[in-house]
Design a protein around this nucleic acid. Sequence first.
DNA 1: GCAGTAGGTTACTCGAAGTAAGTTACGAGC
DNA 2: GCTCGTAACTTACTTCGAGTAACCTACTGC
Lengths: 197, 197
Amino acid sequence: MPKAQRMAQMLTVAEEIFAEQGYLATSMDEIAERVGVSKPMLYEYFGSKEGLLIGCIHRARTELREKTAAAIAGAATPEEFLRLGLLAFFEFIDEHRRSWALLRQEAAVAVPSAQEEVEGIRQQQTDMIGAVLASFTPEIDPLEAEAFAEMVVGATERLAVWMERRPTVGPALATDYVMNVIWPGVAMKLPSPVPHA
Amino acid sequence: MPKAQRMAQMLTVAEEIFAEQGYLATSMDEIAERVGVSKPMLYEYFGSKEGLLIGCIHRARTELREKTAAAIAGAATPEEFLRLGLLAFFEFIDEHRRSWALLRQEAAVAVPSAQEEVEGIRQQQTDMIGAVLASFTPEIDPLEAEAFAEMVVGATERLAVWMERRPTVGPALATDYVMNVIWPGVAMKLPSPVPHA
DNA sequence: GCAGTAGGTTACTCGAAGTAAGTTACGAGC
DNA sequence: GCTCGTAACTTACTTCGAGTAACCTACTGC
């Protein structure tokens, strides 16, 4: 089997087992066995157990960025931008409960570089939000804009966790909840009247 | 040395080393050595490495709950309640950077019971926020109240992380930032006009 | 002065991360 | 159609750290 294909397969299996049992409780031998390959192959391609975990996170991150970027491409107003971005995020979570659990629970594992990888995802999102906010409200305090973006990311992430426990709450409703809370505060800062849907 | 005192000392040392190096990179031998005791003593008192971690989290959780409860005791309006609670939280974080890092980074470790312990802290906070919100705005949709509490906790937690990177932002400013974003959205739902400081 | 127990130690086992050294399959060049 | 190189793969280790069994010691109540 060619390297790229084998690597993808390893990531898929690892993601599944990590999500099932947790990072610590999973052994490299077990992953190797389920892939149908010997342990040194995992080390050949990912260097370490930590490297394998980071590979999983990295793949999910790339996917999430692509989905979100595609979703917000057509947004005209800041409200639309935020709404579409949030919806894309919640939909991604809804479709990828496995990798989402992995990112949330396992990646925060003491392994510093995995932590950084997850922080990279958040950075990617705060940057996006901060940029749009700044472009629509140029006179906003840059520090407060940054704080706002951080809060949106934190609130959204937390709500996504909560959503998993609440089967009646889907991506659309979750998006509404977030917008209901944050939008009035943002609208006050906008220079001109903005349509509220 | 009496048991209770020894346990407290072990927790302090463990918290420090976990925060420094991460949970995985820390060995029980190392903690034992720095405490000035042998490894089986740690197992005698905490059962396992995981148990020791949970002990650390639990202690921080208790402290945080006590500080917050004391801070909000005298609040009269929902705005005051939220503001005082947030301020107490940020001040706690500011004073306990060590334990805070521990809770955030290490506790999410794949160890399920540690995860639960941290979720317990969040639960304690969302319950408090949800309760006050419900008591002041009785006709609010209970599901949305719950979602609101989750978002406040998520936003606040995220902002606390961000605050660590921003030395000019202290507890008071962080509290203002959170209130600026969430308060307009809440005020809309209140039954009667509420004073805005 | 003796018994019981709280607080402590040394010296192990065992499992899992990581590695050294070697093997097979297979396409390119002659 | 044989050989050389290399990509994909394996077996058989070493090492390190979590967890434990068995034993020790000093103080407190009687």
